[in-house]
Amino acid sequence: MAPSSTLKSPASGKVKRSGHSRKLFLKILRVLVLTIACLAVLIPLAYLVINSLKLQADMYTTPPIIIPRRITFEHFQTAFGNPKTLRYLSNSLIVASVTTAVTVIVSTLCAYGLARLGLRARWLALIIFVFLFIRFYPRITTVIPYFLVMRDFSLLDTVWAIIIGHLGITIPFVTWLMLIVFQDLPREVEEAAMVDGAGPLQRFWRVALPMAAPGVASAAILTAFLSWNEFLIASSVAKRQAQTLSIAVAGFVTDKGIQWGPMAATAVIMIVPMILFALFVQRYLVRGITLGAVKG
């Protein structure tokens, strides 16, 4: 398995040698498995980007063209040249940013209130259960009634219908997350501030919030991703004007056939900014995702 290691130490005993080559074997295995795993993540992403740049004629070949000799921006031009795509893009941006801003403000306050209300453990557990339940119950249950409610308020096909729908998911989730953060903060600092005469608002704003800032950042980032990527609620209430990018991507799949090029280009527009953003804020993202599961 590892001839080099046996050659290097010909004099060493049998036990030591087999231990050595076993270690090398494990090391090679580790590198191999991790390389395959990384390729399994990267190849599909790369193929999507390549397809978005392929000529229409090169699109549907067997075997597939991996490195196209000629590339084209035609699909992006079709996408960006279409005022609709621009509207989808701006809708997605509006929905994600309004949802994130409102969620973070409302949920952080709520979580702080719950953490400092002095509730009995049992009551707090009940509230946490309700929030957790809202995070995980079949959302499809409320989507149809929500559609009817929005119809009755004539909010159908507006970004507001999507934003309000997203808030219903993100607020319980972020409140739950922030509750974990606030419960972990040392109370002594706040109690000291209280002795100095700081009111509840000041204690929240000047003492608790700065300590919880990394948690708030994580929550905001997770909310933005969730809202940007969400499909079910958006597609149920937005049919034309208010469509977001996720609906646009799904819209290329029809019973009759698929326009691969524009679909790939739209998917790239949707994915690539998020990947760059994720790389930029990776630490907060990881913290946010693991917080709920590890501390929960």
Binding site: N229, L245, S246
Partner: peptide
């Protein structure tokens, strides 16, 4: 690299 799929929209 391994956590990238987490931020990709399921539709995509």
């Amino acid at each position: 690299i391994l956590i990238l799929p987490l931020v990709i929209a399921p539709v995509a």
